[in-house]
Design a protein around this nucleic acid. Structure first.
Lengths: 338, 338
DNA sequence: TTGTACGCGTTATCAA
DNA sequence: TTGATAACGCGTACAA
């Protein structure tokens, strides 16, 4: 390994001079700087990141902790965040908790161990308070937490509003028997104040029905499932086979919607003629499936920008009160609705 | 930040004793160890990774450098590799070169800076020789390089064989007018020895035709394109509009195949009745698109295991001659063929 | 304008 | 069985 000492020897200066020269410190003369630069080139020098971090306390990296990167939403989010962080001079270290609190704890440990300067964290089992005690003062931005505290900047998605929009759209297109995929049935009064993203989405569905004079009924709710293509496909097949009649499915996210589309195809139902389908997220796959997916699309770039900007501000010492941030979303009408 | 010194003070021992105790060194007595452990718990200690790395020279991380993580193949590969590396006690740091040699160089710099103990590298512009000089002796495993050297273990995919299998299958199902998406037409003799994965795939297509007594002709080759859904969709639409008749498309990868399926749907053609389609990779999306995609599926777990095992062996000092490694692939027949 | 000296938190060697 | 002490490579106050 080539160190600054090696360059110093090669260039006939001290190690400190090398450090200054490589950082373009104005106190170094141009000839000396050139001499150092050339020596560094010749020896193929590259700085030791551990030593720099140990000395400076800065890593120039942010952590991105997601529950699971094995789905298009997460990978698209990771892509957007790492690209934008990069443009702001930060590396991104991506980790997944796989819905295990032990992993959450281990990752938090690791983050505090000066692996990164701050973290964008999507909690799954741990509450914000529990996270906070383990974070030991490291800056963090939370992604849709279970409990609403105001200790950290929080990225929100307008779930209730988005599903309300999608549902209203399906009603306006003539759907009479709408299904919501997926949530267990609950009274509107029980869920309308929920902070949990699942219940917010269910609430948006119910509000749209009520607004149109329809009282939500239990049959309209396909029971709670993991939000994956595989489970959605099977669940909708089972629903069709049960003999239930419906002409539209409001899906809780795009991945489920893709599974629902596939399951309806398995049953020989035509989309949108027999059944209309909407998603929620705006993942790329929705542009290329057959039929293309009508969805409430989030602006991933906007989301990434807001989250990363907030985190970097905190890293740089911003101590203003925690803020709630919401990314832009909009309805994108494609082929899965008429 | 809590350091070993703080624990030492808290537990009334020296800092070195703390280090030994935390590493379960047998020379520390049980009572002392307990005392230290409790103190560490109390203070919510977590080790400083930079200091450990600086001192030990080991990072317990591997780099994964891909050309582009914005596609299902790459994300699935990244997922498989990081999961398996994790099970072997290594963190994975994922980076993308975005097909820019400047990025490749910058990332190599960064890797050499003791950010990780070794790297799994997918070259795009740089030759293996160029990479080697910049790698400065760091262990590496190459993913399908442009030039075949034998300085590094190399992960190969049986491209020629795989496309041969897919093409042969379509011929056996009665296809008479096959298209290959996508490669510019070239004589079989020109390409049969190619190492480049694109030409290997084209060669597999041609060999299957020749084996069945068919002479490949230029009209069968849709011109070279980026391997994305979007370009494939447009290209196949243009091909149909040009009036060319065909009854099967052998696609160079799954993502292209998904675009082709979508483009054929745009043209009102039925799959597999009017046109059959095959892919190559085995990405998950192929199980859920309409129709499901027949493809030559690689075993991502097997691929990840071989690549990571080889790299870790090198990190641990294995200096046997470089080996070529090939992941298992097999034809998976689904709905896009009859 | 450049060099000296020290410390960041850890691990490893040697004494005690 | 434990404790001093010296590195690891870099950044920076301060001296020259």
């Amino acid at each position: 390994m080539v160190t600054m000492r090696d360059i110093a020897r090669e260039a006939g200066v001290s190690q400190a001079t090398v450090s200054y020269a490589l950082h373009n410190d104005p106190s170094i003369s141009q000839p000396t700087r050139d001499k150092v630069m050339r020596a560094a080139q010749r020896l193929n020098y590259s700085i030791n990141v551990s030593a720099r971090t140990l000395r400076s306390g800065k890593t120039n990296a942010i952590g991105l902790v997601l529950q699971d990167i094995h789905n298009p939403y997460s990978t698209q989010l990771a892509d957007a965040i790492s690209s934008y962080a990069n443009s702001r001079g930060y590396q991104t270290i991506i980790q997944q908790t796989l819905y295990e609190s032990t992993n959450e704890i281990a990752i938090l440990q690791n983050i505090v161990s000066s692996v990164c300067d701050g973290v964008i964290f999507s909690p799954s089992k741990l509450t914000v308070k529990e996270i906070q005690t383990r974070l030991n003062g490291k800056p963090a931005v939370m992604l849709s937490p279970i409990d609403a505290t105001h200790d950290y900047d929080t990225m929100l998605v307008a779930c209730e509003q988005g599903i309300f929009t999608a549902t209203s759209y399906l009603l306006s297109r003539g759907c009479k028997r709408l299904l919501f995929y997926c949530a267990d049935y609950a009274d509107f009064d029980d869920i309308k104040g929920a902070t949990d993203s699942k219940w917010q989405r269910a609430a948006g569905f119910q509000r749209a029905l009520l607004r149109n004079g329809i009282t939500p009924e239990p049959w309209q709710f396909v029971p709670d499932q993991p939000w994956t293509r595989r489970t959605a496909r099977q669940a909708i097949i089972d629903t069709v086979r049960s003999g239930l009649e419906f002409d539209g499915v409001v899906c809780i996210n795009d991945e489920s919607a893709l599974g629902v589309i596939r399951g309806l195809a398995d049953c020989g139902l035509r989309i949108p003629d027999d059944v209309m389908v909407t998603g929620f997220d705006g993942v790329e796959e929705g542009e290329f499936c057959v039929p293309e997916l009508t969805t409430v699309a989030m602006d991933f770039e906007d989301y990434a920008r807001q989250a990363v900007d907030a985190l970097i501000a905190r890293i740089n010492g911003d101590d203003s009160p925690a803020r709630d941030l919401t990314a832009i979303s909009r309805l994108v009408v494609r082929e899965s609705t008429r």
